[in-house]
Write a protein that binds this DNA or RNA. Sequence first.
DNA 1: ATACTACATGGAGCCAACTCCAGGTCAAAT
DNA 2: ATTTGACCTGGAGTTGGCTCCATGTAGTAT
Lengths: 139, 139
Amino acid sequence: MSTSTTHPCYRIGDVTELLGLSADTLRYYEKSGVLPRIARTASGIRQYDNSDISRLRFIQRAQKMNFSLAEIRDLLRMREDPQHARDEVRQLTAQKLKETQARLAELTTLGNELQLLLNLCRGSAAGCPIIERIDDKDA
Amino acid sequence: MSTSTTHPCYRIGDVTELLGLSADTLRYYEKSGVLPRIARTASGIRQYDNSDISRLRFIQRAQKMNFSLAEIRDLLRMREDPQHARDEVRQLTAQKLKETQARLAELTTLGNELQLLLNLCRGSAAGCPIIERIDDKDA
DNA sequence: ATACTACATGGAGCCAACTCCAGGTCAAAT
DNA sequence: ATTTGACCTGGAGTTGGCTCCATGTAGTAT
């Protein structure tokens, strides 16, 4: 028994409107194996159904979380069998968190350093204190 | 009158040891115009002098501050005439700070989100709460 | 004399995630 | 009948910052 909900089909142009992804990007996702092959009409036109749209939304959200397309491809596979994949998903997420925190720490340091450079600019008459500072940070 | 300090010349291999940059990278900096043309011996071998080394250290530090090579090329030019370039340098630095802070905000949000996902993992029996969360964040 | 090493050059390849292009098909509108 | 528009395909190009390669030469060590 199939679900009784109608299952609308979107053409690639509909999807670009709906999700804000370019047609090229949509084809690229398929070509690069992030998405499985999309169904076609007899004349070869892609027909995205609701589950494809759902996968695409998943991709968009996972990308915002800094997952790479390769990682997302894996996540999508895990999504097919969530029960079984729990540990793997958690591990991938934990690793992403770790990367995020590391990058966060770096950027915090960097932000402080840049702020300091700008502060040097007030109250320096000659030369360019920023350049001097980049110059002889070792000195 | 030239400065009375001796001006040692380093071959490319010396520089790789000294700074930890590969010979290819050093040649690339020159090729791509980040560095001006390095002096050569009669037989064509690069001779890096102290000012080249200084420029290279500058590049390394500026890179750590997330300046692109294109920006660094500009900064190096400004370094030649710091007096005149002050405003431009400050502006570039301010912009870099702004970018840094924006990215920092994004990453902070992301870090919180990932942490939340991981927390969901404790205390959920069935399915994969992370995948479900990426799925229906809109719902 | 010859092997070895460090260097030189121009140019290709790599990564990610697109983006663009030429040339072809198909369906609807005029 | 033909033109328009949306779509298809395979493949090339883009960006940034390298990295690798083939081939050639200069100078030194044995």
